[in-house]
Design a protein around this nucleic acid. Structure first.
Lengths: 115, 115
DNA sequence: TGTCCATCCCTTGCGCTTCTAGGCATCTTC
DNA sequence: GAAGATGCCTAGAAGCGCAAGGGATGGACA
């Protein structure tokens, strides 16, 4: 509801995908749905962003994929985290944490108008 | 210290610049220094990112500039926030808040390995 | 049977931002 | 007068997200 449509900053999509896959192996289509649900509609991942990102992460060795059947009886490409991918997730999550703290400090600066 | 060198996600630089200028009119060179100081070295803005961003924000009407003398007696281009820019700052700050909350929800999902 | 919708995969091309790597000028300090 | 800090700028490359396309399958419904 109230789909605010916030474009993702460059680089954050990888983090979100890695996290989604870390919870349990899933296929691409489900990743997008899950991210949207968990974020309450704030994060929306169009397929034109999703699949290139998945291939990117696979090429870099962070993800690996197998074709399996979904619950609905369809063939789908299930991604899972490699050891390297899990490490990358930790690194990126830490970077993200550091970043939002830093930006928090900046946004917390006393404003000229208010206080 | 411990300059971690974290590249900024696309779009966040504008927010940081708008905020820095909102505190008080400053020139470009000082913006970079201020952001780095306040963020304790986490946010580092190379000049090749800074000046194009400033021109971008000026072209969009969010910033206005005047040449003045600095404390050190030099001519420098002081940027200040326009009314439109202040509104933009509020919008972007709110978006940022919404985004980090959403990503927080996602990163808080129970992991497959730990929890 | 035929049609529609949801599920599931993919690619091309554009637009945007960031960074690297330069250049230029002034002022102070040694 | 050489060096470093201050202060501005640009061009080019690289990367990423998105819109807009395409295709295939299965179930529901008329």
């Amino acid at each position: 509801m109230a789909a605010v449509k916030s474009d993702l900053p460059q680089g954050t999509l990888d983090l979100l995908i890695l996290k989604a896959v870390a919870v349990e192996p899933v296929h691409g289509y489900a990743i997008a749905q899950r991210l949207e649900q968990v974020s309450r509609g704030v994060v929306q991942v169009p397929e034109g962003s999703l699949y290139p990102a998945l291939h990117r992460l696979e090429n870099r060795g962070f993800l690996a994929a197998d074709w399996k059947k979904t619950e609905t009886g369809r063939e789908a490409k299930f991604y899972r985290l490699t050891r390297k991918g899990r490490k990358q997730l930790e690194t990126e999550a830490a970077s993200w944490q550091r970043l939002i703290e830093a930006i928090g400090l900046i946004l917390g600066m006393a404003d000229g108008g208010a206080q």
